[in-house]
Amino acid sequence: MSEIPTALPSLAEPAPPAPARPATGFAAGLGHARHVAASNPITGLAFAMFAAIVLAALLGPVITPYDPLASDTAAALQAPSRAHWFGTDQVGRDIFSRVLVATRLDFIIAVSSVALVFVLGGFAGICAGFYGGWTDRIVSRISDTIMAFPLFVLAMGIVAALGNTVTNIVLATAIVNFPLYQRIARAEANVRREAGFVQAARLTGNSEMRILLAQILPNIMPIMMVQMSLTMGYAILNAAGLSFIGLGVKPPTPEWGIMVAEGAGFIISGEWWIALFPGLALMLAVFCFNLLGDGLRDVIDPQRRT
């Protein structure tokens, strides 16, 4: 069996060019990501912003110039200056310090809610799409029911009923995002259920569970990752919105949504900085996640670009 049985001619059609070196899995993805970042500076910028946010979330409390909770009535309502870069609020707290410290809380809320829904929604969706039948019907019905509410309104209702805590904000944000993840995972699993390579895997003796985990899951992961990045922005907005109307995080804890709410009353008397800087921080974070999501989508599937 060592020799080639028949000297068949080499195929007439040209093969796609071989990669310079045999890149595998992760390394190839990383290399590609670098290529995309280089060819698309906006995505590069988004990666840089993301790094800055992570850094601020990690180091925020250590590097603040002032105690974010310490009030100083003598220095209340000061416009931005060299001493207070972002000015001070009505009780004289340093806004720059508060904005910086708030990064960690907002980031944690977003990451944990997205991680939660990624696992739950992704799992439910893949099972629904792959197994079909009753699994599909029940899971889809749950999603439909959640989708029957305007999402932010449902989040309000959940936090109001469960109680006013950060954990419940995370939970509510995860619940309202559940249908999105579930539907994407379901659709992706469903189109692959009868795909040639899945049928082939059945022929080679793979059990259904194994096909789900080893064949289908890796193919769905990239799309779910993109979704994760895109909904991070929404999760932050959702949490900040809830805080803005007085749900979830309580003052004086520094959190971007609350800080904007605190500054709202001063806008019409001209003290713009109290609301502006936390609002800007919020906006930049969401902007960063959206750009990142678009960039990731380009890395994974250039055709899907919109």
Binding site: G241, G257, A264, I267, I268, L282, F287
Partner: peptide, 22 residues
């Protein structure tokens, strides 16, 4: 479109008030 989805509405509202009213 990218900016639009990134702006928290309560923040844009306040910016508009500051700009167009104040």
């Amino acid at each position: 479109t990218t900016a639009g989805v990134s702006l928290p509405v309560f923040f844009t509202g306040l910016l508009f008030v500051y700009l167009f009213y104040y």
